[in-house]
Write a protein that binds this DNA or RNA. Structure first.
Lengths: 188, 188
DNA sequence: GCCTACATGTAAATAGTTACATGATTGA
DNA sequence: TCAATCATGTAACTATTTACATGTAGGC
């Protein structure tokens, strides 16, 4: 389960706003936070950094002009003003992509930079999406399926149901105390 | 999260042994059983059927020789003897791919066609894999991560832990009553 | 006879991994 | 100075999506 370009861009921009960083470290951070959902390889990360750099959204021009390609020492990127604008726009525009599997994890990890109303939109959208998946799991199963296929669907159903529970709690928390989140109690 | 070629092939062969079928139906079945893990599109499925057909593993020659490409009516495939051999070999050869995310769902859905010892290998391998993920989630987190990033990792941790519990039960069931599986009680 | 759902197929465009090559830094 | 790890980068390979084109069967 790779992380598609657009989502990777968002993750990079978001992280760089929190802290200027270089590719290697960026990858460690993204894989630590999103590793359950996606894995980012260098083969996608470095080209992405170049692309964003050429687009003027990020820059490694801490001291003087951007270095030429030759050097292989650390290249610390930070957001340009254009990059900050882009990030703000992306985070504010919540459409159905925002709760799809590719984007949701990235979006959620950047909730700290996201307006409360947008956070709620993403969570509610994600919950509706998860409920659809649940309905599909309940209805799509052939009645003559074998034991193991049935068990697999049951497990999937349980996973999706758990996520819905989690989203319920998050939504409730967002709605009551603006910005407060789960207490972190162990749900086992 | 697509389903990579090799795994798709396995899913197709396995399903065709259970019941001869045509592409459209095959896709419905695979998406019903594995839909939580992967989605199969026509753009991958039909080329895969052609490939397997050319390789002599499946055939739509119910009556007479294989139809020419022109017709767009149902094309019911079944396994050839070579396809049955291939499937049996695949299911018997359990390596680390068998419990990776791409393969595990497919493998599990075909446990009905798999030898008990191989089933156990897959489940135990998967559990070890899940435990590694859990360890990575526990250790990889930067201490200064923000609230939402932390919450996301906590959720991921919980999901992986749930899967480990599930695998524990399945492994216990496989070990005691050879071939018996979960009672299906509702774990909510 | 027409509409809808069923059913098959292809091609262009793109994305992403893998494997490799290379350089920098640090500590023993 | 050597090894290990940190760090960046590229290119070939291959898969996969998307959008399209088309045909078929059944109900009304």
């Amino acid at each position: 389960m790779p992380l598609r370009q657009q989502s990777l861009d968002l993750a990079i921009l978001g992280r760089l706003l929190q802290a200027p960083s270089h590719g290697y470290e960026l990858r460690q951070h993204v894989n630590a936070v999103l590793g359950y959902f996606h894995v980012v390889s260098f083969g996608s990360l470095y080209p992405a950094l170049k692309r964003l750099s050429r687009a003027g959204l990020i820059c490694d021009c801490e001291n003087g002009p951007p270095r030429l390609m030759a050097s292989r020492s650390r290249r610390v990127y930070h957001l340009t003003p254009a990059g900050q604008d882009r990030l703000a726009n992306e985070l504010a525009s919540v459409d159905s992509d925002a709760w799809a599997d590719d984007d949701f994890g990235v979006r959620f990890s950047l909730f700290g930079l996201t307006a409360p109303a947008s956070r709620l939109d993403v969570l509610v959208g994600r919950r509706a999406y998860a409920r659809e998946r649940l309905a599909r799991l309940d209805s799509g199963m052939a009645p003559n399926a074998d034991r193991y296929a049935t068990e697999l669907v049951r497990f999937a159903r349980q996973m999706v149901a758990s996520e819905i529970d989690w989203l319920d709690q998050l939504i409730a928390a967002e709605q009551t105390a603006d910005g407060e989140v789960l207490t972190g109690g162990n749900p086992t």
